[in-house]
Structures are given as structure tokens and as C-alpha cells.
Simulated scan of single mutants.
Amino acid sequence: MAPLSFFYVLVPFLLFLTPALSTNSEGNALHALRSRLSDPTNVLQSWDPTLVNPCTWFHVTCDSNSHVIRLDLGNSNISGTLGSELGELKHLQYLELYRNEIGGKIPKALGKLKNLVSMDLYENRFEGEIPKSLSKLKSLRFLRLSNNKLTGSIPRELTNLSNLKVFDVSNNNLCGTVPVDGPFATFPMESFENNRLNGPELKGLVPYDFGC
């Protein structure tokens, strides 16, 4: 009977642990992000990796199921880079990292954030190309990447983001032509100014990225 009694004790214990392990994966992702960042004013001081639930950390918002849905680190005087760990925040809806000194490339893993509504990375030091993987973010409404050091062309795959309402890549070093399909037909030219872009595509012609 001893093994059976152990079973009855073990199963409820494991069921109790399951939610904690689930939320801990998000805490681990955020702690990995913290390890990449320089934080001279200690805005991330409350990010304690020994806590199972990151919902008590400052600048982190969770839903009623203790899933991280918002990360607010705009204008926080942080620097460093982003990594693929952000792709583990499966329920994230708002990624606010604007007005910092974050550099490096925008991770392709951000394309895993299927619930993302807003991504604000403007006024940082991001470089390299805009990831094509962002075209998987079908819920995305706001994508602001202005005032960085981005290069390459605007991915044509982004024209499939039918919910996109605001798109701003001004003040980068992008080249090629500006898409006109999908939501791009509604974006003002100010969204593209101060780049090496050549203006709108001509419908029916294959776009040619001059200078890319």
C-alpha cells in the first residue's frame, strides 16, 4: 500500500506545481533579458529571479492567469541588446522599449509573439534589417521603429499585416522602395522620411531595391 499512498500524495503535488512552472518560464525569459541590459538607474531592481511569478516586478503587467501581457521599459535609460528569450513571452500584447540605448539586431524570435498588439522600439540604436518574421504578428496594430540605425529594405511580407494602423520607420538608413499594398496604402510619407527610400512602388512592376 505504501507505493499507492505515495502516488496519491505525489499527483496533487505535481498538479500544484504545474502553474508555477508555466509562469516561471516567463520569469526566466525576463531574467535572461535583464542579464543582457545595463541598468544604471536600477529600474529593474525588482526583477528577482527567485520569485516564481514575475507579475510582482515593476514595469511588468500580467493578466488574470498570471501571464505577462505588457512590458513597459520606455525611457528607462537602459542599454544592451535583445535576445531570442523574448519569444517565450507567448501572451505578450505590448512591448514598450522606446527611448533607450538598446542596440544590436531586432531578434527574429519576436515573430513568435502572436498576441502582440503594439511594438514600440523607436529612439534606440537597433541596427541590421527589419526581420521578415514580424509579418507573423497578425494582431499587430502599432509598429514604431523610427530613430534607429536600421538598414536594408522594408520587408514586403509586412503588407500582409491587415490590422496594422501605425507604421513608422523614419530616421533610419533603409533603402529600396516603399510598399503600397495592404495597410501601406494608408501610411503617410512622414512614416518613411529620412531614409534612402525611393518612394512608392509602381503597381504591376517588380520592386527593385536601388542602393540596397
Rank of each mutant, 00 (worst) to 15 (best):
T81S: 13
S66T: 05
S191N: 14
L205E: 12
L86A: 05
C55E: 02
S133D: 13
L145T: 03
L21I: 08
S25V: 10
L197S: 12
A109Y: 06
C212A: 12
L134Q: 04
S25A: 14
G104T: 08
F184C: 01
P12Q: 06
S35K: 13
L30Y: 05
P200T: 10
K149F: 15
L121D: 06
E85T: 12
N65A: 14
N124Y: 10
G204H: 13
S162C: 11
K90D: 06
V206D: 08
V68K: 03
A2L: 14
L205Y: 14
N198I: 00
N53M: 02
Y8M: 12
H67C: 01
L174E: 01
Q93E: 14
F16M: 11
F210T: 11
F142I: 13
E26G: 06
L110H: 02
E157C: 05
G176C: 12
V206E: 13
P3R: 07
D39T: 02
T61Q: 12
L140H: 05
L82C: 05
L82M: 07
I69H: 08
M1L: 13
S35F: 00
M189H: 10
I78F: 10
I69L: 06
K138H: 11
E193V: 12
A109P: 00
T41N: 13
K132D: 07
T61A: 14
H31N: 14
V60W: 08
